[in-house]
Design a binder for these strands. Structure first.
Length: 308
DNA sequence: TTCCAGGGGTAGA
DNA sequence: TCTACCCATGGA
């Protein structure tokens, strides 16, 4: 049996904030170790803290958009220290972007009117992972593969190399860079079936462990987006699409991810099924400036069957 | 069986 | 900077 100690933590996002829309804002919510209970609107996740402590989180949000609160039910084996509590709330706050200010984006949405108004009801907080490492690995797993394949590969990585929760090995945290770097190459091919992406992910982990790649440096807010993009492109396995996706995950919305979904969408909605040039496609959201990725994402989301 | 997906690396021009 | 070719895998 898993340890039964429970602690409740909470944090306050900026208002307005819609928890369920943030959790279900894109595919990340269903990529392991995340689990989304759509009935109860609970995001579940096993986490390995920096000191090795394993915790299992049940994350919920209040219904009140104007006075939002995120509640974290933490299951754990030993009493949590203040540092451990702080690390958990910091991680969850990072996942839900509690430090981002969307006031300017909302003002643009109000100015546009129509279906853009809905966004100002606390939308725009696209879910991300607690660490940039996890986000890079997951983004690489979205390249040149269907979404079902992405889910399979990420689940395989977590099951093969993720840190198990004490007493319940079915619950695992996302693998650490150390675990991925130390794994033999056959784990990636024969067990996880990552295909050619295996060597990219292994090299990424090895460089992080060796200190060759400093992921904290990529989260420096003083870096310009073009400089940051150049640094992301230097990571093997990260090209233009993946770099734009990672910029979104880093809170930079001034670059678009030109992928097959984007091309198909703008072709149908704005070019009468004609395949536009990349320049034409980019021009659709250019007027949104530093918010163009969010504008594209919600333009797309309006017409999607929200089945991930 | 063949195609291709929420592309990217590399060599050569 | 641009283009052609190759890369693993599995679903359609």
């Amino acid at each position: 049996m898993a340890p039964a100690n429970e602690t409740t933590l909470s944090l306050t996002p900026p208002a307005p904030f819609n928890f369920a829309e943030a959790a279900y804002s894109h595919g990340w919510v269903v990529l392991a170790p995340n689990r989304w209970d759509s009935t109860r609107q609970v995001l579940q996740r096993t986490e390995r803290l920096s000191n090795g402590t394993r915790v299992h989180l049940n994350i919920t949000g209040s219904d009140t958009i104007e006075t939002p609160e995120i509640t974290i039910q933490v299951r754990h084996a030993k009493t949590l220290s203040p540092e451990e509590r702080s690390e958990i709330t910091t991680s969850v706050g990072h996942m839900f972007r509690c430090d981002e200010d969307l006031t300017e984006f909302y003002a643009l949405c109000r100015k546009r009117g129509g279906h853009w108004i809905k966004i100002t009801q606390g939308l725009g907080y696209l879910l991300r992972s607690p660490t940039l490492f996890e986000d890079i690995v997951k983004t690489i797993c979205t390249t040149n593969i269907q979404w079902s394949g992405t889910k399979r590969m990420v689940e395989g990585l977590v099951q093969a190399l993720g840190t198990p929760y004490p007493g319940d090995p079915s619950l695992r945290a996302f693998p650490t860079p150390e675990a991925i770097a130390a794994a033999p190459s056959k784990t990636f091919t024969e067990t996880v079936h990552l295909g050619y992406r295996g060597r990219y992910i292994h090299e990424l982990a090895a460089q992080v462990v060796a200190g060759i790649l400093d992921l904290n440096a990529l989260q420096d807010p003083t870096l310009s987006t073009p400089v940051l993009k150049k640094k992301l492109l230097a990571i093997k396995g990260v090209g233009n699409y993946a770099a734009a996706t990672l910029l979104m995950l880093l809170g930079r919305y001034d670059a678009l991810a030109i992928d097959t979904v984007f091309r198909d969408f703008v072709s149908k909605k704005y070019f009468e099924d004609r395949i536009p040039s990349e320049e034409e496609a980019r021009s659709i959201y250019a007027s949104w400036g530093k918010w163009q990725y969010l504008a594209y994402w919600f333009d797309l989301w309006q017409g999607l069957d929200e089945t991930l």
